[in-house]
Each structure stands twice: as C-alpha cells, then as structure tokens.
Design a protein around this nucleic acid. Structure first.
Lengths: 356, 356
DNA sequence: GTGAAAGCGCTAACAC
DNA sequence: GTGTTAGCGCTTTCAC
C-alpha cells in the first residue's frame, strides 16, 4: 500500500524527501481515477457531484493532507482573501490594540493580514500602496503617516477599485470610509479639564499639524480656550514625530522661566517624554504642572503620578474599520464613501491633574 | 492620443471606469507591437533584449502604471516573497518591538509580512500553520503559544520544507533555528539581585511551565536559590496566561499572612498586575516587597515606583530571527538546524528593588 | 533579438 | 454526475 501510494501520488517528484512537495488536485484525480474538474467541484462542495464521490474525494484529501494552492486560486478568482494594514508604527499601544481588533475580524472571516509600517515616512507609504495596485490585497486599512501632505498615491489606489478604510489618522480629502474617535470633542474635554483644575497657561503639545487627529484635537483645545472667560496665556508647541527632536523641544520649553502650568499631550509618546523630562528637571506633577494626554496605556494608573488620560477605543476602532471593509468586500454595492464612524474616547481622571 | 491609448490598451475592458482594471503584460505588448515574451524579458532586464527595446518597454510600463500581478508570478516561481509571523499577541511590548525588527528586515528585502495571532490557543496555532503547507509563505517566524504541548503541526510544516525560525518562545524538540535571550542566566540574575537586596522569601511568578522561556527562567531562579547559603522560604507561583485568572491567583497570594518579600515576574504582564494589586492592598514597594520583572516597557522608569527590569533585546531578537530566515531563503544550502542565537538581556536596577 | 507555446494549480463554462 | 477545455497573468524553454 505504501509503495502503491508512493508511485501513484508521489512518483513524479524528483526529490529525496517525499514530503517536500505538496499534493495537488491532479494527484487526487489520478488516485481516484476521476477528472481534475470533478475533484475541484467536489472540494468546493458543488451540487453537481454525487455525495458518494464527494466523500471519497474529501477523505483522500484529508489522508494526503491536501491543501489548495492559494496563489492559483487567487489568480483565477482575482481575489486574495488578504487585507493589508498600513500604519506608522506598531510599538505603540494604540496601534497594537487596533491591530488586535482588526486581526480578530480577519481571522473570523478566514482572511489573511499583511502588515506594513511606514515609520511616518511618505515615500515608504507611497511605495507600499503602489504595490497594492495589482490585486495583492482585496482591501486596505490605513492610518496615514504624519508626513503625508500629498495623497495622490491614495487616490490612485482608490481608482483601482481597492476598498480602503481609514482608521484613526484619516485623510479628509479622500472620499472613502473612515473610523475615528471624536478628536475635537476629546481635545475640548482634556483642555476644559485642565482649566477647571485651575491651569492658566496650558501648552498643547502637537505632533504634526498636517495630521487630521492633531488638527482636530487642537481645534478642541482652541475652542475650550476661547470659551473660557479668564483669558490665560495658552499656547501650542509644535513637537515632532521624531522622539529625539520632541525631547529637545519639550525640554527647552520646560527649562524656561515662564513654564506652562498645564499640558495636553496630543499623543501618548509626548506625555511619556514629558514625564521623563519633569523627572530630570525635578518638576512636580501635578503641583508644578498638570498633565493629561491622549493615551491607551493600560498602565497609566501605575505611573508616578498616575496619568490622566483621554483613552481611545483602539481595539474597537480597529474592529469596526475591519467590519466596514468586509462589508464592502462582501457586498460590492455597499458604498464605503458615505461611511463615517465616530467612536467616543473617554476621559479618565487620575493624579497627574489632581489638586496637590 | 488619448483616444488611441484608450482603444489599444483599454478597449477590451467592459467597465464604466477605465482606471478600474490594471494593465497587464499583454497590454504593453499590444501597444508596442511586441510579443508577450519580449515584454516579460524586458521587464526582468534579460540580457536577450536590446537596450532600446528595454527602454521603450520600461517607459510605457511607467506611463501606464504597470505593476506585475503578484499571484501570477508566485504561481510560476513557486515563491511568494512573503513571510509569516506567528505569535501569541501583539499588544505586548516585547512582541511589538520584535515585529518592528522583523518588519525592518523584510522591508529591506522587499518581502511582505503576514501576521497571525494565536492568542495562546493551540487550535488556532495548528490551523494557521496548516494553511502554510501550500506555499502561501516562503518562511515562518514563530513564537509558540503557551498552550502548545503538542507540536506535530510544527513538524508537519518543517517536513514541507518551509524554513522556520523560532524567536523568544522556542520549541526545543524541533530541530530548527532559534533566536532567544539567555533566559536561564537572566532568571538567575534577577533572583540573585533580590537575594542581595535581602529578600528571604521570593515568589517566582510563572505563567506556564510548558513554555521554554518560563522553564529556563525558573531554572535560573532555582539555581540562584540553591547556591544561596541562607536558605529562605522561596517558592514558585503558577499563574496563568489569562489576565483575569492571574489577577485572582496573585491577589490571593498577596492577601495571605505569610506574603513573599520579593517577586520575580517571569513576564511583563504579571509584574503590572502585581503593581495594581499592591496598590489595592496598600502594600508598599519596595519596603514591603521588592519586585523585578522580565519586561520591555520603555516607561518602566516612570512607574510608581520605577520598576527594576530584565530587559530583553526584543527588536534585535526579531531582527536576527528575520535575518536567519532570509539566509535560509537566499541560500538553500544554508542549514537552519544548527543555528542557535542567544542575545543577552540586561538587568536594569530601579526603585522597585531599592532599599527604602 | 524576438516570438510561439507550454505550463504553474485551479476554476468554470460547456459538453456529454 | 462527470469530463474536456480554455484561461487567470506570468515565465521560460526553444525555435527562428
């Protein structure tokens, strides 16, 4: 039996390891004395095939450990059962939680997830999207890099009929689905919180003014300040997406005489950098300065002092973005263009904006 | 010109959006009155093709935004320029930094990275690997799930000649490359550190005894204790990979009368859970209890109190694992079986093991 | 230097 | 209910 098996199924393989090549439909056909087409239909549970044949085929397939060649199917179907996730970085609590949400949906749908990191670099982002123009992926989930002022590469992709859903960092000029949090309102909340705590000179640490999320968070900041009766001496500090540069800029600001008494960190990284600098400069949080930041750190409560945060629903944002994308993939008539999902962030008050 | 272009190149497309379909080799051939074969060769910079023709082909390709169909090439080449990364989770500082390292290498090599999360679930892990048996990926980087006592699925994959490199959580029974840190020594260092600080009753928080990394870290713990002259009352606490369960187990232990005076967290999560519980129970770190943990938290220094860590070279582990894998992909004679890379962790002393 | 043709593994008309 | 065949887009002999 073993020899028969070897001859009929693996007899044509030139290799010293009979396990090294995978079994194909052709092999099943030969073994069962059926045609290739019949096997294919049986494997795809076609109504044309008799139950008996189906069973024989499936049994042999299982026995020989048959798995279809994904690229052959993709070539025929013109679909890859694969989606791409394009994001600035992965070593970030927001993005890693978002990936989690995306992966959960993809796994459930039997889809594969390609991951691409832009490291905030527009050129990389362009190269990555360009590669999607020929069917490598059925759809794309994306959070744009902070350098992205240009967006032709995204338009190009959309013109190739590749469904695209933005999450978190969106591009408002592009007419497609986006899943975000209520950045403006959250920025407003954070700032109002500091004002209520008595801050008169709040610094809004911006990362990059081009970025949709920063723009909106900053608008919220400005709205809160404008509405506030007691005019203070608030300002925006333009930091950088480079950690080193941001460190220098913030340190310089905190070393001046007229320091702020409150800080809104528009992204997590800026808050942790600020903490480190306050330690160095022996500035006391919250007595010398209060801090609140957009952050998904699960251990915000364990920091010294615990960090008040605007916490974004990262997992949910990823999950909902993926769900929208799969809607579009499953129902070609589904119109992504009109979809705009906003999932609220929550303010969690902790000691970094406390009284003492 | 535009009309001519439309007719010759896109004239055969039945669609209301002329941008919706991608241009193929066939289209280039028609436009230039050359054969498909010539175009293919020109695009691949074959020596057979005249410089003049090459240039004309490349120019037109650029003009029409030609990109090759990746699945057609994969089908022919029997290689996908894609690797898979299989790991327990992504919302973890170690793994996200490792992904960073992997992605850096892959991007440089022009490879694509598929990501799969097992969520510590053996069944998922098996299903994922099974899908790799037919050429979906050229190679696999993997950190096994804590449930994985069985390993036939991994053996199966290796038998299909798919290069596999383990990183961090390896499987010693499988004869293939692995990139790890010096877990035993690190466990020894951590424990010795606590002993030096005067701890007499150290609890080693284990996640899962099956796991290679936990086993070795625990061995280091036991070695340190055995070597120590003053016999103490040290012990191992078997926690769980489920966060909730771990929380209950640790809380129960810390609520007892005879609490430990020192803790080694074998993974980051267990340390942060312990911090939270100490807060709840009003246990003072380091005076009531000292803590050191395996952790890659970049903000370990900002915790309250700052956390002494065994910090693993996560990025480097990912990077080196990827480099090994590409060695194997580029040189088929390269033998992964003998490769065993150990990159040391470093102990960083902070306040959680301090005197006060 | 260029082209015709076979084929990677699979699917889907269309015969029978 | 099963088989024949064409073809997805690309590469690669082998002719010319």
């Amino acid at each position: 039996m073993t020899i028969f098996f070897y001859e009929t199924v693996f007899g044509n393989f030139r290799t010293n390891n009979i396990f090294s090549m995978s079994v194909k439909i052709k092999d099943l056909a030969k073994e069962l004395h059926l045609s290739i087409a019949t096997i294919s239909k049986a494997l795809n549970d076609s109504y044309e095939i008799s139950p008996d044949t189906k069973q024989r085929v499936l049994e042999l397939a299982k026995k020989l450990n048959y798995t279809p060649n994904p690229y052959a199917s993709s070539l025929r179907h013109k679909s890859s059962k694969t989606i791409a996730v394009v994001l600035p970085e992965v070593a970030d609590t927001f993005f890693s939680q978002a990936i989690n949400g995306i992966e959960a949906v993809a796994q459930e749908k039997g889809f594969h997830v390609l991951i691409y990191l832009t490291h905030e670099n527009l050129l990389k982002e362009q190269a990555i999207l360009k590669d999607f123009q020929n069917g490598r992926v059925d759809g794309v989930l994306m959070s744009i890099s902070s350098q992205s002022d240009a967006n032709e590469h995204i338009v190009d992709l959309c013109n190739h009929n590749t469904p695209l859903v933005f999450f978190d960092r969106v591009c408002d000029d592009i007419h497609t689905a986006m899943v975000q949090t209520d950045d403006l309102h959250a920025g407003y909340l954070a700032t109002t919180h500091l004002l209520k705590k008595g801050c008169r000179k709040i610094a809004f640490l911006s990362m990059n003014k081009n970025l949709s999320i920063i723009k909106k968070r900053m608008e919220g900041f400005e709205k809160a300040i404008t509405e506030n009766e007691n005019k203070g001496d608030h300002f925006v500090l333009e930091c950088s997406s480079s950690e080193e540069t941001a460190y220098e800029i913030i340190k310089k600001m905190l070393s001046r005489n007229k320091k702020p008494d409150g800080i809104v960190g528009s992204v997590e990284k800026l808050a942790t950098i600020t903490y480190a600098i306050c330690n160095e400069l022996h500035l006391k949080i919250p007595s010398d300065m209060k801090i609140i930041a957009f952050s998904n750190l699960q251990i915000a409560g364990l920091l010294n002092p615990s960090l008040s945060t605007i916490t974004q629903p990262a997992f949910e944002i990823g999950r909902r973005a993926a769900i929208l994308l799969f809607h579009a993939l499953e129902k070609p008539r589904f119109n992504l263009k009109e979809e705009r999902l906003v999932i609220p962030s929550v303010l969690i008050e902790r000691d970094s904006t406390g009284q003492k």
